[in-house]
């Protein structure tokens, strides 16, 4: 039996159906899609049926980046895998392996984007070399915070899109703002199905024809905007105030790099779900697109209060 792809438009790619999305939501049938995969049922017919979760598909966990390990989650998984025929479909309700902030700024030659390489399982530093900044088109980088597996699925969509351009070899390539527009529709259409891709995305790049730099961001429910500097997650609180003060569109590469490192350092000090292993990606009109090798920043933990935390708290141990 064919797996059913979600609204795969034959020409525009997956998750882009426009009218179809409305038709589906009009029928409201997505709450009670019958399971038709009999092979799937057979494979699970001997399994012990866990009690079906009483929660509706949209009564779900909070969108927090630091989901604690939750034994309930396993029961929830069992409820999905062992759901009896005719049970409502279940969707992503909270992230498992997550990436934290992505930071990006415009500068004189183009854009610069930074993130750490951690994939955290709740509070566990589970994967330490995950690339969360990937090339999406000849002059476009996409960075992501949130669920890593969802981002890897998004990367696959983008790779397919770009491969199509490469295969045709007709001089038509995706521009940053096209990638951005596409991703907005993907994110928004998935939220319409109550099956979100649990990510905050950053799209940055340079239009090859005009040399114009582009920077935009999109959340998992489709809230999107463009600006001279963007940051996802904690970065919005920790890094953007720095950007507001110091970022200029005409700053040099050295200045831009110094600003990003300063912001990364602040994020690393304050965000417990981050590690001191970063990558920086740049897109410029002259030298194209680069994502650096992972590097560390110097840090200072020798402050008196860190070394002697109880020094001024007399009577404590």
């Amino acid at each position: 039996m064919q797996p059913s792809l979600p609204s795969h438009h034959p020409l525009l790619g997956p998750d882009t159906a426009i009218l179809a999305a409305q038709q589906q939501s009009a029928s409201a049938s997505f709450f009670h899609n019958q399971r038709t995969n009999t092979a799937h049922q057979d494979a699970n017919s001997n399994a012990v049926l866990a009690p079906a979760s009483g929660a509706m598909p949209f009564t779900v966990a909070p969108p927090q980046a630091h989901a604690p390990f939750d034994a309930g989650a396993l029961a929830f998984d069992a409820a999905i895998t062992n759901a009896p025929p005719g049970a409502p479909n279940k969707h992503t309700t909270y992230p498992y392996v997550t990436g934290t902030s992505v930071l990006a700024i415009k500068y004189k030659d183009g854009i610069m984007m930074a993130a750490d390489t951690l994939g955290a399982y709740g509070a566990t530093k589970r994967y330490k070399s995950i690339s969360r900044i990937v090339p999406a088109a000849p002059t476009t980088l996409v960075g992501a915070g949130g669920e890593i597996s969802d981002f890897q699925y998004i990367s696959k969509l983008l790779t397919e899109l770009n491969d199509n351009d490469v295969i045709r070899d007709d001089g038509v390539v995706l521009k940053p703002r096209e990638v951005f527009a596409y991703l907005q529709r993907v994110m928004y259409n998935r939220r319409n199905k109550f099956d979100p891709l649990w990510n905050s995305l950053v799209v940055g790049g340079v239009d090859q024809a005009t040399g114009e730099a582009f920077l935009g961001t999109c959340s998992m429910i489709g809230v999107s905007y463009t600006d001279s500097h963007v940051a996802t997650g904690f970065g919005n609180h920790l890094a953007r105030p720095l950007f507001r003060n110091e970022q200029r569109d005409d700053m040099t590469e050295q200045e831009a790099r110094a600003l990003l490192e300063k912001a990364l350092r602040v994020c690393y000090y304050r965000d417990k779900n981050s590690i001191n292993k970063f990558v920086i990606g740049t897109v410029t009109k002259e030298s194209g697109m680069k994502v650096s090798e992972p590097f560390s920043l110097s840090t200072e933990w020798g402050y008196d209060a860190f070394v002697h935390p109880t020094k001024h708290a007399l009577g404590s141990w």
């Binding site: 949209f58 966990a61 909070p62 969108p63 979100p196 809230v223």
Partner: peptide
Amino acid sequence: MSTWSPYDMNG
């Protein structure tokens, strides 16, 4: 536990 919402208020 709060719930995921498909909506946001962006003012």
